[in-house]
Design a protein around this nucleic acid. Structure first.
Length: 255
DNA sequence: ATGGTCGGATGCCGA
């Protein structure tokens, strides 16, 4: 079973990349983020033709998330957004596939430490914590996959001196991510699995990818029942090397 | 045309 997460940064622009990558990587379950499109525009037909079924929680211009499952797998008990958390932004969708509860999440970027958006990021992560607490109580097998916009440790940045205490790396953000793990979730990333490096995002500016000026901010968190089954964690750099790529690369965990 | 580069939507904003 291959679980994957990918921030595509506009599904409209990246649809050819997504279809090619589904063919090459053959993931079983995919969490997508930053669709930047409404539900009516979601390319169900092309994704069905590629052998996948999909559910989405879209939004115009910003955000938007989806879950894909390789047929004949089906996505059941779909829940959109964080129940009870008032939020106009579409950042969460959950479903059950083959007995596993999967969540696609696009955590708030936060812009700058101390900003209004930073405050929203921390409130979002607190609400996500409450939600995942409930999900863990009802689903033994839980996989929470997405763009967390948090680099867990200094090693997860290309330049700790530059990034430390800034946005994506501040103590408050790292504590919030650790808070999710304290619920009973574990980052599937483990250091022996580094065939193509550990970074998942590179800024478009200043030739970030060519110089490998990256961060590890996309994660797959697993409940204990799934963690024992992890065989491999990897970043798939192939889509990031294409013309007009997303600024993120997919993370794939093989169970 | 909009900071550096993208994407999307305008007369920049968010990342």
């Amino acid at each position: 079973m291959k679980l994957a997460t990918w921030n595509v940064n506009s599904l409209k622009v990246r649809l050819p990349h997504l279809l090619g990558w589904l063919r090459d990587a053959e993931p079983d379950v995919v969490a997508l983020q930053e669709l930047k499109m409404q539900d009516e525009a979601f390319p169900h037909e092309a994704i069905e033709a590629a052998g996948y079924t999909a559910v989405c929680n879209g939004q115009k211009t910003y955000n938007g998330v989806a879950l894909l499952a390789k047929k004949p797998l089906v996505l059941q008990d779909v829940v959109r957004d964080i129940p009870g958390f008032e939020d106009a932004q579409k950042r969460v969708i959950a479903a059950t596939v083959d007995g596993i509860r999967v969540v696609s999440v696009y955590v708030v970027n936060g812009q700058a430490v101390g900003s209004e958006k930073f405050d929203y990021k921390l409130r979002f992560l607190a609400a996500l914590n409450d939600y995942l607490h409930e999900e863990l109580a009802t689903h033994e097998q839980l996989a929470v996959m997405g763009d967390y916009n948090v680099a867990p440790t200094p090693e997860d940045t290309h330049d700790p001196l530059q990034w430390e205490d800034g946005i994506l790396c501040s103590p408050a953000e790292r504590a919030a991510l650790q808070g999710l793990c304290d619920l009973g979730l574990t980052d599937a990333y483990t250091k022996p699995f580094l065939p193509d490096g550990r970074f998942t995002w590179w800024d478009y500016r200043m030739a970030g990818f060519a110089r490998n000026l990256g961060l590890r901010i996309d994660h797959i968190l697993l409940s204990a029942a799934l963690l024992d089954w992890v065989r491999e964690w990897k970043v798939d750099l192939n889509p990031r090397r294409l013309e007009r790529p997303s600024d993120h690369a997919p993370v794939i965990v093989t169970l």
